[in-house]
Design a protein around this nucleic acid. Structure first.
Lengths: 129, 129
DNA sequence: TTCGTTGCAAATGTTTTGCACCTGA
DNA sequence: TCAGGTGCAAAACATTTGCAACGAA
């Protein structure tokens, strides 16, 4: 394990994620931080986001469009992804222990984690359509 | 809807997918097909794979590494992804109607689909480790 | 001073696209 | 014939990385 030093860039990335629930991409975080630190580079944002994810301080999410998104909420919970606007929102956690054990019975490997993702139309896209 | 013409390249892509259950990437399909049609281009493989996915003849899967994979099995079923070797395998389908309805109660959009993905170590990585 | 961190730019890897030519119907 | 399909190469994107300079401890 390598030691960490303080950096205001990293700090502002954490702060930014803490204040939003829209599961932004690296680029969305970058645009925001640049308002405060205009010289920050996209590479720094990427480096810190993967670093924070490794330390389990944030969570990486991959969506259907193949772009990484990040979530400050590291507690187990599920996601809803709108098929029209692509927005990602949190859902109440479902109990997945039952799922895991029922699937494990017929499976020869070890199942450690179970991710449930819902797709459909979000409130916004449902009403404006 | 535009009309389709026969093409042996597209046909061989379908045949290739039909004969395998390892959920290959576009590049893996490309390598295989090149044994038969050495001049086929990667662009053609990509074009046909997205086209077939649009027509619901195959299924697109996105995994944690951000690379697209393809599945000939379009029936509802779940996937297991090995966190070590990245292999993708099929699992018996779980009944997700219960999940959908229990989540729908507290959700203001419309939930159409529910995807359950399991992570862990596959049989191979479990024994060789 | 030391070594983790940064900005920059170049490199990487995947996927898409423009275009002239080819081919199935 | 002619619209759809192909090969090729370039472009588009997201992400990673090498490196010299910077900055926290």
């Amino acid at each position: 394990m390598q030691q960490r030093k303080f950096s205001r860039q990293r700090e502002s990335i954490i702060e930014n994620l803490k204040c939003r629930t829209d599961h932004p991409t690296a680029d969305m975080v970058y645009s925001d931080i640049r308002q405060i630190y205009p010289n920050i580079s996209l590479g720094t944002v990427y480096r810190n986001l993967s670093l924070l994810a490794e330390e389990k301080k944030i969570q990486k999410i991959i969506t259907d469009d193949g772009v990484l998104r990040f979530d400050y909420n590291v507690n187990p919970h599920d996601h809803f992804i709108c098929r029209k606007c692509g927005s990602v929102s949190d859902l109440h956690m479902l109990d997945t222990e039952g799922l895991k054990s029922s699937v494990s019975k017929n499976f020869e490997g070890s199942i450690e984690k179970c991710v449930v993702t819902f797709y459909g139309l979000c409130k916004n896209c449902l009403t404006t359509h």
